[in-house]
Design a binder for these strands. Structure first.
Lengths: 329, 329
DNA sequence: TTGAAAGCGCTACCAT
DNA sequence: ATGGTAGCGCTTTCAA
């Protein structure tokens, strides 16, 4: 590997001068500049980010920890983040947590050991604060900011960005009411997901506001994810003789799984059962019927992330979800 | 930041001894070991991967370059990769190329500058070999292996892993024949995508083998991607009065977009038009009707990647696609 | 404007 | 079994 000393020797200048030329900050004679640049070109020199990082004390990368990259919301967010970060000259280390707390703590330590510039934690899974506390404190003490997407971690002293899911839940129920639906089921993880709880809270508040009575049998807090979770949970309810005319599903994927189960059971969407999802994923516009959903905004979130990650103020940003009415309601 | 010298001082041993204890390779007295370990614990010492990397000459990370992380195939692959790499103690830098050659070259240089352990390039977009050649050579010369997923780059001297798309195309056409379809359209990027070309080749070979005549009007080489590409392209063909009774779509996403367009146009799948996709994504099992597809195997590919990336032999692995017959045919 | 040199944190070599 | 130390590639003082 050709290093900066080789370039210096080749150009007949000092190492420091090469560094200055490449750093483009300080003034250098046009003559030495050309000398150095041609040496760089001739030797095919590529500066080592490692040397720079060791010297600087940190690597120009941030960690993006995500509960499940296969979920459309997270892959959309990852893409937006990648773009936003690149504009700032930062690389992105992606860590898929697979909903595991052990993985999370491991990856957080990794971030610390790599002296990253920051950590973005995007998961609404529930974690043990006592486990996270010391690790996050460590990170913050090492001047590595941590930002949470999808749930607040105020006790850990970090900022967060989320959608207003309680409001969204209320909106959804009101919309079902306008469609004359009265037996509205809630399909989502609840005990293990903070977002699941928020949406559930909105659901309950919405029922109350509408004067509907709460029915335990219509709350499906299955621990499963994605299409399959929506499918099996809904099919099970149908098989058990539970009756309902609407489903508020915690993600678009759960919603699509639910719709599939409803069809397989021989019922029609939205005639027999109306369905609303969360996320506003692109897929929702291409299933039949098209999915009504509470929009999410990955671009806005990514943009907020880059703004908030390096701001020392601890705060919590909330983004409103808009109801996008399509064919399933 | 507490470093190894602090630990050494605190434990009353030399820096080298601390390193040895932590490296766990060499023999150390139980006594010194405990001394060191307790110093580590007391100081909350975390080894810097940066120091290690500079010393070793490389960072324990690999770059995963992907044309579009939002496409289901790539996010599934990313997830599998993450798991497989972690088992080897490697981190994964994710770079979303957004189908841009400029981004690709930039990211490849970045990999070199970061002294990564390897680069996995997962895209079937077409690139200018003359542009890639010097950069890849550089990488290989620096002992950074490069592996291609989804297309061969034999001229660049790197290994590749792909599915057998020609065979898959032939399988699809034969399957359409068994369903009595004669006017089979091909929907996919062709001129800009190597996989698109392979699948097209299989399509043409399949038609020939079946004795069907090729019809230019049934080849929709639109440059668009994902659901939207499938939707607009198909709707346009329908609007133009093109008639067909089957579509071979280059990805599951294109297929689902096409199905949506067919419905919106007032036709039925599979009654009027049968559809086959590529990829075997989970979503295909939850749309209505369920999608017939040529399976892909992200787990198998990820496993191959970890095997082939560090093997010096240059080779090309091909994985057969299996036709998964479901409701759209 | 340029050069010399220290030092970021680590491992591995050479002594002891 | 342990200690001393060089050196990975870089930036940034301090001097000239």
């Amino acid at each position: 590997m050709v290093s900066i000393v080789d370039v210096a020797r080749h150009a007949g200048v000092s190492q420091a001068t090469v560094s200055r030329v490449l750093g483009q900050k300080v003034f250098v004679t046009e003559e030495t500049r050309t000398k150095v640049m041609s040496a760089v070109a001739e030797l095919g020199y590529q500066p080592s980010s490692l040397g720079k990082a060791l010297r600087a004390g940190y690597l120009d990368s941030i960690a993006f920890l995500v509960s499940d990259i296969e979920q459309g919301w997270y892959s959309a967010l990852a893409k937006q983040m990648q773009g936003a970060l690149q504009a700032q000259g930062l690389d992105m280390l992606l860590f898929d947590l697979g909903h595991s707390e052990a993985r999370l703590t491991q990856m957080l330590q990794r971030a610390s050991s790599l002296r990253l510039r920051g950590v973005v934690l995007a998961t609404s899974d529930l974690f043990d604060l006592n486990v996270l506390q010391p690790i996050v404190s460590n990170l913050l003490a090492s001047n590595i900011p941590v930002l949470s997407i999808g749930q607040r971690f105020d006790q850990l002293g970090i900022s967060s960005i989320l959608h207003d899911d309680v409001d969204a839940g209320v909106q959804a129920v009101a919309h079902f009411m306008s469609r004359k639906r009265r037996r509205i089921a809630y399909l989502n993880r609840i005990s293990l997901s903070v977002a699941g709880r928020q949406r559930y809270e909105g659901y309950v508040a919405g029922l109350e506001r509408a004067g509907l009575c709460f029915d335990e049998a219509l709350v499906w807090g299955s621990p499963l994810y994605r299409f399959e979770g929506g499918y099996t949970t809904t099919l099970e309810a149908l098989g058990n003789g539970v009756r309902f005319d609407a489903i508020l599903a915690g993600t678009d994927e759960l919603a699509i799984g639910a719709i599939s189960a409803i069809h397989d059971f021989g019922l029609k969407v939205p005639h027999d059962v109306a369905v609303v999802g969360f996320g506003g994923l692109e897929i929702g516009r291409y299933v039949t019927p098209k999915l009504t959903t509470l929009s999410g905004n990955p671009a806005a979130v990514a943009e907020q992330i880059t703004r908030m990650l390096f701001s020392s103020a601890v705060s919590s940003a909330s983004i409103r979800r808009e109801l996008v009415v399509r064919g399933t309601t």
